[in-house]
Design a binder for these strands. Sequence first.
DNA 1: CTAGGGTTAG
Length: 472
Amino acid sequence: MKKSSNPFIRNPILQILQSKCKTLDTYQQAHAQIITTGLILHTYPLTQLLSAILSSTLPTSLSYALTIFDRVPNPTTYIFNTLISSILTHHNHHGQRTHLAFSLYNQILCIRAIKPNSYSYPSLFKACGSNPIWVKHGRALHTHVLKFLDPTEYDQFVQASLVSFYSKCGKFGVCRYLFDQISEPDLGLWNSILSAYNSSADDTGSSMEVLCLFSDMQRGSKIKPNEISFVALINACADLGAFSEGIWAHLYMVKNNLKLNRFVVTSLIDLFVNCGFLEFACQVFDELPKKDIFCYNAMIRGFATHGYGHEAIDLFNKLLLEGLAPDDVTMVLIISACSHVGLVDEGCELFYSMRERYGVEPKLEHYGCLVDLLGRAGRVNEALEKIRAMPMEPNAVLWRSLLSATRNHGNLEIGEVALEHLIKLEPETSGNYVLLSNVYADMNKWEGVKRVRRLMKDNGIEKAQGMSVVDV
DNA sequence: CTAGGGTTAG
């Protein structure tokens, strides 16, 4: 009933906008008609035009929309809100337009006749959560919510976006506090708290918490979990290795006709891989019609961690054939898969071509793979050269990888170099001193042994029990 | 009246 009160809903010009109009020309024609018919003076048609332009793939869409907007004499909150969320959802890759969205929000505050409403906030909180630069602004925005929204406006959308925002900046206590204040959370809110505990997965307690929350949600029985809820649940099961709970989730989804979409399948692959059922992982992977890089990465990781390096590499080639772009994670997985099956040259080749061929900038982890690759193959000198030529500071993982290569292939000199660096990076780890001392002993460098003992004393390290530093 | 939230790997 209420929808029919919108007099513009069946307007043919607007219907053209809502259909697929692809070229700039089409938008300009619609724009011209909206002006000549006077529709431009009405908020709704104007907003339709703006959001159609902003959701298009035209390279000039943002500036075009802003040009139109600049000529609007008295923009309403509704227009601002649409503009803000369209910009954030369609033009905010890498967060480069968050600033623009905030300046539009500020304009709402500056215009005396209007004020923000509950639609103004969710997309802004979402943007603030996705980039640490904007966390401060998100917190400030929270105070605005309390200041400008009256309790009836403070709805589940705003609350869900707040819970999710605080979870992305690691404030899980705040998430829980906000969530517990809500007497009847809707599905979106349940999902935001489930995902919040899901992403704090550094302690297993939070995965247990996801299982508990999930059953709390079901106890009320008013709320039916959807795909998003199950992604959180299955991820938690994967983290805990809770195979039977995971299987239950999988079966529930199938029985209740929930879609095994790419998010769900990725979490199922992790579950099955972590529980040691690689065949199940393959099965859900194969049955997924539209795979993205995340699914592939999960499946490649599955093969690689179970020792199937060649299958991992085959899958990598399949992903390329499908026209998907490998990302930095793919490259880590695939280079280390090469390393594990002894395809040293192939691995090096992948490393050296990753920037040019796949557009992935080598990061510290990739150098780690390279060092591992060369080190396992006994090319210890070469590995050291690579570490020295890296554009960033090598970390302890890298030096340790080199160290273990020197131990497997008997190279005391480079072992010494690696340990010197390890001791600098981790002066607290007594084992490093012990190993270095042993290296010196093996080399008959007794003054080295003495130096290590002095170094230990200077750094306040006691000999660990059961380990002996060679006595001179 | 119209608009907004909750999903992806070491």
